[in-house]
Structure formats: C-alpha cells, structure tokens
Design a protein around this nucleic acid. Structure first.
Lengths: 214, 214
DNA sequence: TAAAAAATCAGGGTAAACACTTATTTTTTC
DNA sequence: GAAAAAATAAGTGTTTACCCTGATTTTTTA
C-alpha cells in the first residue's frame, strides 16, 4: 500500500521538484497537486491523501488558518508544513493548529522522505536544523511566558500589521479600511505591546518573521 | 542546436524542478547542475553553457560577486538571476554585475522559458511583475544626485542601515557613532534614495534582504 | 596630484509616529 | 444571555521621521 501524498504550493518550480522527487519512490504516490488554498480544500473532499505537504504562504489563503481547517475537517490527513519561513512563531503556531511536521524548502531528499514516513506513523517531525532551537524555546516559554502567552494577534491586528509592513502610513491604512486614524494608531500601539517593540522597525521584522510580507 | 543551460542552486527541490521542467523542451539541454559556487566555477571551465540560471543566495559564495566573476571570465554565458529576493537594490546590482536576466523563483514555466530565449539572444529580460517598478526607480535615480547611478552602499551607509534595522533611532545612532544627528539623517535619506523607498519600513526590509540583520 | 566619491554638518519646515489615558460598541465564546 | 475579547474612537501632548535646500572636509581612486 503506497503512501498517498498531496502537495499544495503556489511555486510551480517547487511543485515540479516535489512531484519529480517523490515519483521516484515506489512506496509513495502523489495523489493531488494544488496551486492555491481553494483548490486544495475542494480537492481534499474528493480525494483524501495520507499526507499533505502544505506551503504556508499561498496567494489566496493563510497557511495557519488553512491548517486549522484541514486538521479539523480531515483529521486523518497528516499535515507537513513546507516553507521557507524559519520562524519560531510559525513553527509553534503551525503545530498548534494541527500540523505534525515542519520542514524547510531547502531540505534535501532524505529529510523530506523521513518527514513523510514519520508523519505517516502519526509522529511529529521537525526539520533537524530547527529542532534544538525550538526545543529550547518551548522549554523557555514554559518558564517565562506570561499568562496570555503574548503571541496571538487578532485578525484585524494581522491585517494592519501587514499593511504597515507594506509601507502604508497609518492615515493610508485608515483610508483603505474605512477606519479612523485613531483606531489604526490604537491597533499599532497594541501590536507594539504584544510584539514587545517600541517602533515600526520591530513591527516590520515581526511581520516578516510571521510571513505576512515577502 | 539546443540551448545549453546550466543551473546553480543550493535548494535540491528547485534544482529538481528546474531540471524536470527544462527537460521537457526539445530545444533545451541541461548541461550542468551545481549546488554551490565553487562547484559552479569549476564546472564552467570544463563545460561552458549558453545560459546560467543562478541563485543569488548560495551557502559558500555571494551571488553578486559570483556574477561579476562569471560575466568577466565567461562573457559568452548569459546569466539569469533566479531568486526569491524581490529587491530593487539586488536587481540593479545584479544587472550591473553582468546578469542579463532577473526572475523570481515563483515564476511560472512561460516566464522561465521566455527569459531563457530572450537572454540567449543577448537581450535583457526582467520578470514582468518587477518591470514597471524597476523602470520607475531607474528613471528616478537619474534625476537625483546619486553619483554613479547609486548602486552599491558605502561602508558607512551599511553600518547605519544595520543600526536602523536594529531599532536604534537617528539620535541614538548619532550618539553611538559620535556623529551629528544631521549626518545620520543625511545617510538615512541617501539610503532611502538608493534603495528606492520612502520610509524606515522599506529600509528594514532591504536590510534583512541584504543580510545585515537576523 | 587632481578629480571623484564618501562622509560630515546645518536651517527650516511638515507629517507621521509615539505615549499615556479613557471609553463605547460590536463580536465571540461559554 | 452574560462575560470576555475584539474593534472602534478620541484628547493632548512630545518625539522622531521626512523633505527640501545648501555646504565643507576627508578619503579614495585614477
């Protein structure tokens, strides 16, 4: 019985590379390839795979939300995040949302196959290069973190953070979203509080780490 | 006569994807694949291709320098930068160093093929999505007093850019480097000109892309 | 050793961000 | 349907960034 693997990624090159790489293995079958979140959700109902290799950054849908939806709706699918984002925040969030694996796009073939086989057995798999740091962070997080965990941003906050990181001023954001300048500034202040920074520079860096831009 | 294409990229997936994609075309032949800069330089002397698809970010060598060396040593090779970096600074620098094409890794097959054919005919090719903005920037750059066309950042500029991206204010930078506030502001303005941005947000993003922080 | 590039500094302004506070309405969750 | 969370908005400042102009001195390069 082959392991059925679906792939969702908006980069044609990565899609091809994965397809080609996996098709060389007799115990793996590529059961579907999708270039965006909508296609993916539609495809999963028709043809449910064992493993889903999921790009976090896709044009139409956010990878975190997508993971939450799929993990809930198709609990039998083992989700492996496949991404360029080497971010502690994202690793934690994705695992929280129900992903079982997290590997980087510059991983080699061995890592990819090991991840697929591990997750197929319902065990978590984390890119070796990320393991130690993530462990340290999670241990630290239990020691230090404040009650609220400090990290979760609301939908509106993420939206505004993204616009900030795309070089819109507060006034421009207010106009764009039909909000008062004051509201946007309040959100910005709350973002700075939550992300522990004192200016736009820190916000931009956080936005990049979270994959909201670039 | 087939177009001979070499590929240099440290991402195994991208490498496979490209190889697979190009091998479907009768008029193209993949003449070499390289996973790092040293391999590439060694390989080119033995087997010189018509086109080189070159990743800017490789573990051992900087893509800019590499481009300069290859363009000088193998002028018959048409270099196409293939990268995730959507940065005005990098585009200009790469073209300056001798690259003829610049496309993004999330480009589709059509763009890739068009780039290869265009560059094979010794004509420059720029990713369509980047064209307009780059043009605008290049025109703007000629209006302004940036001496040589303003490609590379000076040592001092890089130093200050790094401090900006590390969340220092201009006043703090001035104190740290024993400069007048005005000097720091002048450098910041020049940075914005050179990098084609209107505020700190763009500077931070450029700094990250250039690897000055994180 | 000239010329070019880089680094330094400033006046005088406008616009935007930052800081601290309070408060109402809407939406979500239990 | 009550409680909690999120989203909305504002008053009143201070600080910093941004934009235009101009310049001199130091270092590098041809």
């Amino acid at each position: 019985m082959k392991i059925r693997v679906a792939i969702a990624d908006d980069h044609p090159l990565i899609l091809r590379g994965l397809q080609n790489l996996l098709s060389n293995h007799m115990d793996i079958e590529v059961s579907g390839i999708y270039e965006n979140g909508s296609e993916l959700l539609a495809g999963l109902t028709v043809n449910t795979p064992d493993i889903l290799l999921l790009d976090i950054q896709m044009p139409d849908k956010n990878g975190l939300e997508l993971t939450g939806i799929i993990a809930h709706q198709f609990p039998e699918v083992g989700i492996i995040a496949l991404t360029n984002i080497d971010s502690q925040f994202y690793i934690k969030s994705m695992l929280n949302q129900g992903a079982l694996g997290y590997i980087l796009k510059n991983s080699n073939e061995d890592i990819l196959l090991e991840a697929i086989k591990t997750v197929y057995n319902r065990e978590p798999y984390l890119e070796p290069a990320l393991r130690e740091r993530t462990w340290r962070n999670m241990i630290k997080a239990q020691h230090v973190t404040s009650p609220d965990g400090g990290q979760s941003l609301t939908r509106r906050e993420k939206e505004i953070l993204q616009l900030i990181a795309r070089e819109f001023t507060s006034q421009e954001i207010a106009d764009k979203l039909f909000l008062s300048l004051r509201t946007v500034e309040t959100h910005r202040m709350n973002l700075m509080l939550k992300l522990g920074t004192k200016n736009m520079v820190g916000l931009v860096k956080a936005a990049i780490q979270m994959g909201l831009v670039e």
